[in-house]
Write a protein that binds this DNA or RNA. Structure first.
Lengths: 246, 246
DNA sequence: TAACAATAAATTTATTACCAATTTGTAAGA
DNA sequence: TCTTACAAATTGGTAATAAATTTATTGTTA
């Protein structure tokens, strides 16, 4: 049952007590010797657990004084709860711009790499990886590391956030052919170095995803939730933003 | 000099050896007792250092076998070097789309908050914070946490990357009035709920920044050349040799 | 009474020594 | 050749102890 070393379980217990609110930020934890009695382990083990918490940034050790709980600094990526709708809309807008940029700057090698992901997807091998590669190659083709970094960050949300991951899994497991067709359309625009077409094709790709997400959630939801989503559908639609002069 | 506890310095030393390539990924570190002799500290101290490295994700401890170096997973934000140009271009595109979205979804309270940042900026108090608030309020006004998160991530680059921070500082210290004027233009577009105008105004805002960055880099390049030439001028000057006449 | 200095107490830091548990390689035996 | 058993190497954990640091207390002095 306990594969891990003892101090890990102590870390979990203490962290749980901090999270539970028993110890608020700035409060002092009980002295080591008290933990020794509470958990029936030796003092070095307690020390190891406290060091682990310190490295994690949960507590601060003041020599000769005590151990104090630190304010929890939240990661900007995990700070806000992000829904699948929000993620998809953001990806639509940002990857749309990325595609437009890439249409300028993409190299022949990168186009060849995109072709490769397409054929991989057609063969049905590692479809999800091929999809990821397709989008990231385009992000790289912008020759803008800030763009790449931001898009990678959004992709990370997809894997980190379990709700989002599940929602995407549902959608992606079906409609292979449509996805392939849309990728083809994007690739064609990039080949022609047509920025506007690349943006539009990318938007179209994600607009279908958003609609699929809504259909799925509608399918699953009760009537009142249906009502809610049909209201927010307007909010998350791309119609407001896609109409531009050029 | 040594405020920290002993194990921290051991962590630094071992980490340095890992970074130097002395221990590659997958390699086994020397046994604890060897470290004891190497660094002249006790075994518990070594163990604490190893635990710190383990929590940091640098090494993996296998009971009864040894300590093994792990592959270093790089943070997507710090993975690539991002120049001020790249950051500004990315911000232009992404915040442009954010502004377009915000024009649709922004609330009256958020518009009021934007007005407040404007007057703060006019008064010249905490100008940089006011600027940050202005852009982040718009990001929030999208009602899309994925958008907000991505834009916050880009802002973090500005503070983390020292090169970028310096470049921005140079630019922002001048042209207050222009910045204010551009913010006003963006705000007016948002007030009118005009998505296209909001995007355009935001693009314009950043386009000026990009131009200013180019001017600045040109200026610096010229300076450098001057410096070089003045150095070589000294080197190739005839002063040393002509003074001997007579 | 208030301020300051010395002292005592509480707490973490670090060391030494010892034994237990686990893994791994090796060698003996079937 | 394969399996088993054992021994070596290594980490895991505990106990006892001394040292350094911070904090609270207490006593003295102005």
């Amino acid at each position: 049952m306990k594969n891990k070393r003892m101090f890990w379980s102590i870390v979990e217990k203490i962290e749980a007590r901090i999270n539970s609110g028993e110890f608020t930020a700035g409060a002092r934890l009980p002295p080591e010797r008290e933990f020794v009695e509470t958990y029936n382990v030796s003092r070095p083990t307690i020390r190891e657990a406290i060091i682990a918490l310190e490295v994690r940034g949960r507590v601060e050790v003041k020599t000769g004084s005590g151990v104090y709980v630190l304010e929890q600094k939240e990661d900007s990526a995990t700070e806000h709860k992000i829904s699948a709708f929000e993620l998809t809309q953001a990806r639509a807008l940002f990857e749309g711009e990325a595609a437009a940029l890439a249409a300028f700057a993409i190299t022949d090698e990168q186009i060849a790499a995109l072709e490769k992901t397409m054929s991989q997807m057609e063969m049905g091998q590692d479809v999800e990886k091929a999809d990821r590669d397709f989008h990231l190659i385009i992000a790289k083709a912008t020759k803008n590391n800030a763009v790449l970094s931001a898009i990678q960050g959004l992709w990370k949300v997809r894997t980190t956030n379990s709700d989002v991951a599940e929602a995407y899994k549902d959608i992606c497991s079906q409609s292979h052919t449509k996805r392939l067709q849309e990728h083809r359309e994007i690739l064609n625009a990039l080949k022609k170095r047509d920025t506007a077409a690349a943006r539009t094709a990318m938007h179209k790709h994600f607009q279908r995803l958003i609609n699929a997400l809504f259909d799925k959630s509608e399918e699953k939801a009760l009537e009142q939730i249906k009502k809610q989503t049909s209201q927010t559908r307007g909010l998350y639609s791309l119609d407001h933003v896609v109409s531009r002069a050029n």
